[in-house]
């Protein structure tokens, strides 16, 4: 990869666009999630601010920006401030190799998926820093949960992605999309339904969303690792949570749902439509199910998802070898 001025400029512009995407995504998703929750619960959701409440999310983020930064006593303040920033910036990097369209990739890397997997592990560091530094027992418990959960769910996630990588023989995300066709039966989901299912479950676990939202289980730990954060710190955690959701949805689309390819007309819109459908599914899950217990969460992972994904990987390897 040549590091010329143009490619550097390309990366900087892409970073800015990704920040824009993250913020826009958070605003849209907050509104979308609250509306979905409202409709599922047979109430209108945000309604008063702006037409049908569309400006509500922007108002809320303005309020978060304007809030006094409340720092509890005895915090380890360097880590306390570092944690939200750490939660936010690695996610930025993760969007770079995602192919939104055929030519719409910020930085086409041959080992794109490796980059994503490596940097997504950083997110949990921010969680543990936040929980540790804020001098709160709930925070500490939440952080401990976050670490073991995210370590656990990364493994089946990688395993299920590996199966697809076996098929396409490339770590390049664009390449993986290119291997798939435009119509749904040409997508990897039809070849690897089990891997898709495992990925879907670990996606929910990896992003700490209900029913796997143990690190911030509000009925047990009030708010888990971000109990003591308010204002901007909380907003950054919030932003990174939605950005993470978007990221794993994009990866899912790239690997299993044919990326930018779709019926009739290929293009970046298909990436977004599919990614947001997956996001909608995650939101739907959250407003339907109770939360699992922590030992159950780990049991699901170590006793079911991991053996299943290994089995799937074996079968894929054998089939690929034979054909």
């Amino acid at each position: 990869m040549d590091l010329s001025i143009t490619s550097l400029a390309q990366i900087i512009i892409a970073c800015l666009m990704v920040i824009g995407l993250m913020v826009a995504n958070a605003v849209v998703m907050v509104y979308f999630e609250r509306k979905t929750a409202g409709f599922i619960q047979r109430r209108p959701g945000p309604y008063e601010v702006g037409p049908r409440g569309t400006i509500q999310a922007i108002c809320d983020s303005m309020k978060l920006l304007g809030k006094q930064l409340f720092i509890p006593g005895n915090v380890d303040w360097l880590l306390y401030f570092l944690a939200p920033v750490l939660a936010f910036f690695p996610v930025l990097l993760l969007f770079l190799p995602i192919p939104f369209g055929k030519f719409l990739t910020a930085m086409s890397v041959d080992e794109g998926i490796l980059l994503i997997l490596a940097f997504s592990g950083l997110g949990v560091i921010s969680n543990i820093l936040a929980g540790w530094s804020s001098n709160n027992k709930y925070g500490l418990l939440g952080a401990a949960r976050a670490v073991s959960q995210s370590i656990a769910y990364e493994i089946p996630m990688i395993m299920s992605l590996l199966a697809v990588i076996f098929l396409s023989g490339s770590l390049n995300l664009s390449q993986i999309v290119e291997e798939q066709g435009s119509w749904p039966w040409q997508w990897n989901i039809c070849v690897q339904p089990l891997a898709f299912f495992i990925y879907l479950v670990s996606l929910v676990g990896e992003t700490n969303r209900a029913p796997f939202d143990l690190p911030e289980a509000e009925s047990e730990l009030t708010a888990g690792f971000h109990t003591e954060y308010s204002g901007m710190g909380f907003a950054l955690f919030f932003l990174s949570e939605y950005a993470n959701m978007l990221l794993v949805s994009f990866v899912c689309v790239t690997f299993f749902l044919g990326g930018w390819k779709g019926p009739f007309l290929d293009g970046f819109w298909w990436t977004f439509i599919k990614a947001y459908l997956i996001m909608m599914f995650i939101v739907w899950l959250r407003w339907t199910f109770p939360r699992v217990r922590f030992d159950q969460l780990l049991n699901i992972n170590w006793k079911w998802l991991l053996p299943l994904s290994i089995l799937n990987l074996w079968i894929t390897a054998i089939v690929v070898k034979l054909l």
């Binding site: 979905t36 599922i40 619960q41 109430r43 739907w284």
Partner: peptide, 18 residues
């Protein structure tokens, strides 16, 4: 089954008196 129930409610009219 649970998802189908909440999905159905998603499309049914809201109950709130506004």
């Amino acid at each position: 089954v649970g998802l189908s129930i909440t999905g159905r409610f998603f499309f049914s009219p809201v109950k709130t008196v506004h």
